[in-house]
Design a protein around this nucleic acid. Structure first.
Lengths: 201, 201
DNA sequence: GTTATTTTATACATCTATGGACAAAACAGT
DNA sequence: ACTGTTTTGTCCATAGATGTATAAAATAAC
C-alpha cells in the first residue's frame, strides 16, 4: 500500500457507480453532493479523489467507451468483413439497448445532447469523440472499398456520416423503442439500404 | 381587458422566451428562478401565470411543434408526392439546424434525451409525441404505396422507423455537424438508399 | 366609491449546492 | 517515537432553488 492514510472506498468501483448515474440522470442532474452521498463518502473525499466533477466525468466516459457495444469499431482488424463488422456491432448495440432495464440509451450520445454547445470544457471533448468515431467508420468503409467487398462507387464520406447518424439515432430512439426486434428493424433497414448489412434478406 | 389587475408582461412572448431557453439549456437547467429572472417577473407571478414548470414546458413544446421544420409531416395533404414531401421536410430541417447560431438541435429530441425514462410526467408526454410522429410517417408512406408512387414491396413499418431514426439522429448530430451541406449529405444518402429522395442523382 | 377579481410583491422556512479551509486521523518509512 | 503523506471529517460562507402564505396594488363591473 502506498504512503498516507488509506482510502475508505474502492476508487474504480466508484467511477463505475458514477458512470451509471451519469448515464441514467445526465451530467447536471448529478451534483457533487448527490454523487458523494451515493458513494458513501464526503464531498471532501470526493474533491480529494477526483478533483472536479468534469474530471470524473471524463474518467466515467473513458470507462464507458471501454465497454461500449461499438467498441469493435475502435480496434477493428483489417481482415474481417466490413459488412459483418457493422452488422455485428449494430446487432450488439440493439441487444444492449433493449436489455437495459432503465432504457438509458448511450452515455456518450446523452452527453452530446446535454452538453454540446453549452458546456465549455466537456462540449469540445464530446465533439472530438464524435469526430474520432466518424473517422473510424470512414476508414473501415475505405478498407472495404479497397478490398472490393464494397461497391467501388460508394461515397465513403457520405456513407460514414449516414452510418454515424444511424448509430446516434438508434441510441436516442432506444429510450422509447424498447424491444430488440424493433431496434434491429431500424438497423437492418438502414444498413441494408446503404449496402452494409451482412445477411441475405 | 378582463377583470382584475392587468398582467405586467406579455404571456405569449414569455412562452417563446422560455421555449428558447429550454431549447438551449434543457429542462433541468432552467429553474423557475432562472426563468422568472429572464422574464423579468417574480416567481410569484410565474407560478400564478403558468402553474408549474411542467405545465409551462408543455406550452413551450406546443409552440415549438407549431413552428418546427417537420410540421408539414403533421398536416400533410394526401395529394402531394411522398418523396417530395420527405425531401422538402428534411431539406428544411437541415437548413434550420445549420442556421441556428447556437446549434441547439431540436427541442423535442433534446427533451427526449434528457427526460425519457427519468421524468414521471414529461417522459410519457414525449413518448407520445414520438409515437404520434411515427404514425404520421407511416401513414404518409402507406399512402405513397397505395398511390403507386412507392415500391409495392416496401415494408412500411420498417421504413417509417428508419425515417424517424434518421430524423432524430440528424437533430442530435446537427449540434456537431454545423454545415447545411454535410447535414444534407446525411439526409440525401439515407433517404436515397431508402428510396425516398425526390431528386435524381 | 365599493366590490370582486387578478396580479404583484414580499417574506418565510427549508433544502440543495459549491468549494475552500483546517484540523484530525491513519497509515509507511525510518 | 518521530516524520512525511494522504485521506477524512467538520466547519464556514454564500448562493441557488422550491412552494406557500399573506398582504398590497391595479383593474372592471356595478
Amino acid at each position: 500500500m502506498s504512503v498516507g492514510r488509506p482510502s475508505n472506498f474502492d476508487r474504480d468501483a466508484a467511477v463505475e457507480t458514477v458512470m451509471n448515474k451519469l448515464w441514467r440522470d445526465g451530467y447536471e442532474a448529478s451534483s457533487v453532493k448527490a454523487l458523494s452521498e451515493m458513494l458513501g463518502i464526503t464531498r471532501s473525499s470526493f474533491y480529494n479523489a477526483f478533483g472536479t466533477r468534469e474530471a470524473l466525468f471524463e474518467e466515467a466516459l473513458a470507462l464507458y467507451a471501454a465497454q461500449s457495444p461499438d467498441r469493435p469499431l475502435a480496434d477493428a482488424a483489417s481482415d474481417v468483413s466490413v459488412k459483418t463488422l457493422f452488422t455485428e456491432v449494430f446487432r450488439a448495440m440493439c441487444k444492449a439497448r433493449a436489455e437495459d432495464p432503465e432504457g438509458r440509451g448511450c452515455l456518450a450520445v446523452n452527453s452530446i445532447s446535454e452538453l454540446c454547445n453549452s458546456h465549455d470544457e466537456l462540449g469540445p471533448l464530446l465533439e472530438n469523440a464524435v469526430s474520432g468515431n466518424l473517422k473510424r467508420i470512414q476508414s473501415i468503409l475505405q478498407s472495404g472499398v479497397e478490398n472490393n467487398e464494397l461497391n467501388q462507387d460508394m461515397d465513403v464520406a457520405a456513407t460514414a456520416l449516414a452510418v454515424q447518424n444511424l448509430q446516434i439515432g438508434l441510441n436516442v430512439l432506444s429510450k422509447i423503442v424498447r424491444t430488440e426486434k424493433d431496434l434491429l428493424i431500424i438497423a437492418e433497414t438502414t444498413l441494408s439500404a446503404l449496402g452494409l448489412w451482412a445477411e441475405p434478406n
